[in-house]
Amino acid sequence: MKKGTLRQILLLTDGCSNYGEDPAATAALAFEQGITVNVIGILDHDENEDSHGLEEVEDIALSGGGVSQLVYSEALSQTVQMVTKQAMNETLQGFVNQELKQILGKDQRLEDLEPEKRGEIIEVVEELGETTDLEVLILLDTSASMHHKLQMVKEALIDLSISLNARAGKNRFTIYSFPGKRKNIQKVLDWTPKLDSISSVFPKITSGGITPTGPALREAIYQFGKKGLLRSIRHGDEPGLEETGY
């Protein structure tokens, strides 16, 4: 199997969108393009996990082929890296499963193998997760209600970069916030291998009542596309894991 680059959008938000297209539909579009959409819903202390309005979080991740998790801001660091890694492993396992089907027959899934025999296959997934390259576009909701959560978000993102950079594979991160000034999204940090420099550039809260999650996701997909294009012109390398099925 050819080693490629995994692409993820990590959406951090605390509420439901109220402007523009349905974000779940846009997430499905991203998934079509080989980009996984993960969503972390940050809870307020007076909310619980069944809180109304946060269902959207699950829907977006479901149609974006990714992982979703609701969390209070204190536990954000561990959640962010768990969600990212889990989504990576699930994507990779998807590829491996496809290869397996070709070897074992159409109806064979990993679950049908005896647990003792799963070990080696899971080990292959683990190895891929360690060595594959990863690009994460972080899409951060900076609407007013996120105000007291941004400090925790910043720490969680620095922590994510520490975790992912302990892998052998290469990482690239970029951060966009939404809503932007007169635009759907605003670039906060250009593609970079490490996030420890974000303290100085971290976004301020945008005032105004709209949360255009759908349009912001669409812009995010476009940013990936643009970068892929630029890169293939510059280095002539192929973007992503296309040949393994997406």
Partner: peptide, 9 residues
């Protein structure tokens, strides 16, 4: 399942 299999490994 995946994490459990890794632990068993």
């Amino acid at each position: 399942q995946t994490s459990m299999t890794l632990e068993v490994n």
